[in-house]
Amino acid sequence: MRILIIGGSGYVGTLMLPGLATEHEIRVLDLVPPQGDHEHVAGSATDPAALAAALEGMDAVVHGAMGRRSESHWPHPDVASAFEVNVASVYATLEAAHAAGVRRAVLIGSLSVFDEGQLIERQVDEETAPDAADVYGVTKRLAEQVGRIAAEAHGMTVTVLRLAFPTPDDVWPRWALPVVDEPIEIRRADGSLVPALAGSDLSAAVSAALSRDDGGYDVFHIVGADDSGRGWSTAKARDALGWVARRRYQG
């Protein structure tokens, strides 16, 4: 499959590319070149001309771009950039994909659509109503609505993958948060580890989502796995996409 990765040079895009490139023909739309030998279209996902050029000849598009951090409130998201990238560029991408005849799209979402205050202690699934009120969570909630609207209006297959703590395989189960110097361990109040999502498992989830053939809009939780019985449920992804995390933490 010929896939356009929006934001393929960013943190999440860089995690996805190696695995996806083993199965698919990859093109990247980003302002800067991606790591590795991948076809690159320089430009912004809010630029209609850049989107049209990048989508030409593609079978599917994966939107994984992220807004920049605030200079005045580091490391929190910049408000204008968050709305521009997480909402406006998703809308522009899906409209351009429709115009180009590209009917499959995967949106890289986040479990941050839920209030992060006690998220690691909560048992949320895809039926739980999102309730985040911070700028990042709100923009990711809005991006999901944009995806649903595009699926309904254009007959596209739009799949949202809600991630938590994506990280390179070589530091898993820790999370290599881009704004800190060393990978960190995420732990619940009782001290048990919440494993991050390995990049290879993320790539496999994106490939599985790209093969979804039942049409319309849907959302799946794609997170790290452990044997504690307390993790966020990925049963829907297992049943509908055939995806399970291959890296499983045994604490």
Rank of each mutant, 00 (worst) to 15 (best):
L4P: 04
F114P: 02
M16Q: 04
G137P: 07
Q123S: 14
A133D: 11
I3S: 03
P183C: 12
V135S: 01
E39H: 12
D181S: 15
L163G: 12
V85N: 00
L142Q: 07
L163E: 09
L142F: 11
H38N: 04
Q118L: 14
S200R: 05
E23L: 13
Q118T: 15
G229R: 11
K236H: 13
E182S: 13
A245E: 02
D201K: 06
L31F: 04
D181N: 12
M58N: 03
P178Y: 05
D227L: 13
R247Q: 15
S211H: 12
S228Y: 08
S192E: 14
P18T: 10
A225N: 02
S81F: 14
V158G: 06
T14F: 06
A82H: 00
V180P: 09
L15V: 05
E144A: 15
R68G: 13
G13S: 08
H40G: 09
A150Q: 01
E71T: 13
V135R: 00
G242K: 11
A153V: 11
S228A: 13
S89G: 07
T139P: 01
L15D: 01
R104E: 07
G216R: 11
A82P: 02
V160Y: 00
P166F: 10
L241A: 08
I26E: 00
I3K: 00
V171P: 03
H76V: 02
P173A: 12
I6S: 01
R104P: 08
G216C: 10
D30L: 09
A97T: 10
S228P: 12
M58V: 08
L142E: 04
H38M: 11
D190F: 14
A198M: 05
D213N: 06
I186M: 12
A52K: 08
G137N: 05
H63R: 06
D115I: 15
P183Q: 03
D201Q: 03
V12I: 15
G10R: 01
V32L: 08
A235F: 08
I108P: 02
A42D: 09
A96N: 05
E23Y: 04
P18M: 07
S112F: 10
V194M: 11
L111M: 15
L20A: 05
S70V: 15
S207R: 09
E144N: 08
G199W: 00
L197Q: 07
A21W: 00
A52Y: 01
D125H: 08
W232N: 04
M66Q: 04
A82T: 01
L15E: 02
S110H: 07
A237L: 11
A189S: 14
T46Y: 00
A21V: 11
D47P: 13
R68I: 15
E144R: 08
R2M: 07
E25W: 02
V106Q: 01
W175G: 03
P173N: 05
H73L: 10
Y91W: 13
V219T: 06
L241Q: 02
L241E: 00
V171M: 04
V62C: 06
W74F: 15
F83Q: 00
V28W: 01
L29S: 04
N86W: 05
H154E: 03
A153N: 03
P168L: 13
V194L: 14
L177E: 03
A60N: 00
A52V: 10
S110C: 09
Q123F: 06
H76T: 05
A21S: 15
P33L: 09
S9R: 05
Q123A: 14
G147R: 04
H98I: 03
G67D: 02
